[in-house]
């Protein structure tokens, strides 16, 4: 009898423990997000975020506004989601970084590039896309964030087997 109640008590304790750990885990997320993009370290937290908005917040700590000074080049239709050529060029001045987000990938942030003084604010790369979704380019210029968005239709995803 007493051993049964003992077991139940332990079980309850374990459950409570698990619940509080989960809560603490959730509570911690926003703090990791405070890291600025100017930081030289690899932005691990930003790469872990699922949604594009959270990833932008984790990487830069602010929100972006759309700009027509960013040219985002991506195919209308990508036959192979594993290799989608995407490039960004901007006429904005004082650009310090350019980042690429794929909205509905398991983790939205794909790549982030630091653009030091003297480097042309233009980057081309190839990304994986799980399915048809928006590709968002964020340009950080003079301390502000600007974005450009384009939908790319994917016929074969780049994340399945």
């Amino acid at each position: 009898m007493s051993s049964t109640t003992g077991l139940l008590a332990t079980r309850r304790l374990i459950l409570q423990g698990a619940a509080s750990v989960a809560l603490i885990g959730l509570g911690n997320l926003p703090f990791g997000a405070a890291r600025a993009a100017a930081n030289d370290k690899y932005p691990e937290e930003a790469f872990k975020q699922k949604s594009e908005a959270d990833a932008i917040k984790a990487l830069y700590g602010k929100t972006a506004e759309p700009s027509d000074k960013i040219k985002l080049d991506a195919p209308e239709i990508a036959e192979n989601g594993g290799v989608v050529p995407i490039s960004v060029t901007t006429t904005l001045e004082k650009v310090t970084s350019i980042s690429f987000f794929v909205a509905e990938n398991p983790n939205a942030l794909a790549a982030s590039y630091k653009i030091p003084d003297g480097t042309v604010p233009s980057v081309a790369n190839r990304l994986k896309m799980a399915k048809t979704t928006n590709v968002v380019a964020i340009v950080e210029a003079d301390g502000k964030l600007f974005s450009a968005t384009k939908e790319v239709k994917v016929t074969v995803g780049g994340c399945g087997g």
Binding site: A111, P116, V120
Partner: peptide, 24 residues
């Protein structure tokens, strides 16, 4: 001096390619 630094996640394609330009 660093002229270009890339932070990549797993969503960059296999055998990655990148293109950029710098001055000087």
């Amino acid at each position: 001096k660093d002229v270009f630094v890339a932070d990549w996640g797993p969503a960059v394609s296999k055998d990655p390619y990148v293109k950029f330009s710098f001055k000087g």
